[in-house]
Measured scan of single mutants.
Amino acid sequence: VTLFVALYDYEARTEDDLSAHKGEKFQILNSSEGDWWEARSLTTGETGYIPSNYVAPV
């Protein structure tokens, strides 16, 4: 399991995006899409895309 933590708040801009709150942890499901990674929030269980530069490894 690849875990990352949000460094900043991010507000989803499309229905495919996933909002993130600073300190929230995510499981990365797919990081092969360049700057946008598919992730699952460990807080809400929701999945979507987050900007890779907004997260760091735990």
Rank of each mutant, 00 (worst) to 15 (best):
K22E: 07
Y54W: 08
L18F: 05
K25A: 07
S41Q: 02
G48Y: 05
E24A: 01
G34M: 10
E33W: 11
P57L: 08
R13P: 08
A6S: 05
L7F: 03
V1K: 13
T47R: 10
D35P: 09
T43G: 06
K22P: 05
P51Y: 08
G34R: 12
L7P: 02
D9Y: 06
W36R: 15
Y8L: 09
T14V: 06
A12V: 04
W36I: 10
L18W: 02
T2R: 12
W36Y: 13
E46F: 10
K25N: 07
D16A: 14
F4Q: 04
Y54L: 15
V5M: 08
D16M: 14
A12W: 03
K22F: 07
L3N: 06
P51R: 07
L42S: 03
P57C: 08
D17Q: 15
S32K: 11
P51C: 12
S19L: 03
T14L: 09
A39M: 14
A6K: 00
K25I: 15
T2Y: 11
T14F: 14
Q27V: 15
D16V: 13
S32I: 10
V1H: 13
S41G: 01
T2E: 13
G23D: 05
E15V: 12
L7N: 02
P57Y: 04
V5T: 04
T2K: 12
D35S: 09
S31A: 13
I50L: 12
S31M: 15
D17R: 13
L7D: 03
S41Y: 03
D16G: 15
G34N: 11
K22N: 04
L42C: 15
T14C: 15
A20T: 14
H21K: 15
L42Y: 05
L7S: 01
F4E: 03
Q27H: 11
G34C: 14
E38N: 07
L18E: 00
S52A: 13
D17E: 15
I28T: 01
I50P: 01
V58R: 00
H21T: 13
S52F: 07
D16I: 12
E46Q: 14
Y8E: 09
S52P: 06
L3F: 11
T43F: 08
V58P: 03
N53V: 09
Y10H: 04
F4S: 04
T47I: 14
L18P: 00
L18Q: 01
L42F: 05
G23Q: 02
T14P: 02
H21F: 14
